[in-house]
Simulated scan of single mutants.
Amino acid sequence: MIRTIGIYIYAGLVVIGTLLHLPKAKKLSKQKSSAEINEKLFEQPKMVSRKVMERTGSTVYVKGQEKLPDGAVLFVANHQGLFDILALIGYLGKPVGFIAKKEIEKLPIISSWMEMIHCVFIDRKDRRQSVRAINRGIDYLKQGHSIVIFPEGTRSRGSNLNDFKPGSFRLAIKANVPIVPVAIDGTYQMLEEDEGRVKASTVSLRIEDPIYPEDYQNKKSGEIAAQAQDIIQKSLQGKTSEQTA
């Protein structure tokens, strides 16, 4: 537990260290959006995420970055644990925002950076606010900002998948952007597996083939959700068979 507390303290100090970069980043965020500006705004969140992951002693392997399309995409990932977000920010290979819980908006410094990388805060208990948040996410995608969703809705805390909820797939449908499935494995072993104690793990991010608008335009959101879940499930099973072969 002492090690876990130490990692949390380290993470807090690294986040505090980004305060020096906030004023410049806020000015930059007010300029006309471009790929270059998005990359610059993403530098500090990416740096923090990598440092914290490294501090845990974990190793992150990424496969399939060559499949990433240019422009905005909706990333669809399974949600094993809390460290999924750091793994994606640090190693995915593309600036991304998230559909995040409303509570995170209360966190100082972190919430400021999340706003600048175009995260959307959602209160699932407030239907009207949820609709506004989804519409904001659609606007961000149309403006060229990629977003990650976790359609399971909550952490699985293991290697099994919960059913994908179709509602969030409206983001891609309305914005007319590619959907990129990402299979995450190993993050639950960093925290959730051992009663909240942080430990090292081998984490993999497997980027699968994009599902382009022309491939899903005649499908309902439930069908798209089922397709994405099937892709990620097979990807996770493929990784398991590779390890045990």
Rank of each mutant, 00 (worst) to 15 (best):
K63T: 13
K67F: 00
S146T: 10
V52Q: 10
I149G: 05
L88D: 11
L191I: 04
S111P: 02
I99S: 06
G144M: 01
S241F: 12
D70A: 15
Y8I: 12
I134T: 13
I110H: 03
I37S: 11
I2Y: 07
K63P: 00
E242R: 15
R206L: 11
R124T: 08
V73W: 06
D185R: 05
V62C: 08
L20I: 13
S33M: 09
K239C: 00
I9C: 11
E193D: 15
V60W: 04
K24C: 13
A133K: 05
I7A: 03
V182C: 07
G144Y: 02
D230E: 15
K199T: 11
D230G: 10
K94Q: 15
Q217H: 15
F164M: 01
D123G: 06
I89C: 07
M114D: 07
K102S: 14
K234H: 13
L68M: 13
P69E: 07
N78M: 09
D215V: 00
I184S: 04
C119L: 01
Q31N: 13
I147A: 07
S204Y: 04
V203N: 04
S34P: 02
A77P: 06
H145V: 00
T18P: 09
A133Y: 12
T59S: 15
L141Y: 11
G6I: 00
R170M: 14
E242G: 01
G238T: 00
R170I: 04
I231H: 07
D163I: 09
L28C: 04
I117W: 06
T154R: 06
G153T: 09
A226D: 07
F83E: 01
A226V: 01
Y8R: 03
L41A: 08
P181C: 04
H79E: 10
G97W: 02
A72Q: 06
K94C: 02
T4L: 01
I179E: 07
F42D: 07
Q31R: 14
K234T: 10
I147W: 05
S34E: 08
K63A: 11
D126G: 03
E43H: 12
R132P: 03
S146Y: 09
D215L: 00
F121H: 01
K46P: 00
Q80A: 08
E208N: 11
I147M: 14
M114N: 07
P213K: 05
V131Q: 09
R136Y: 00
S146Q: 08
D126A: 02
E36Y: 05
G57V: 05
V177P: 05
T240I: 09
S29Y: 09
E36D: 15
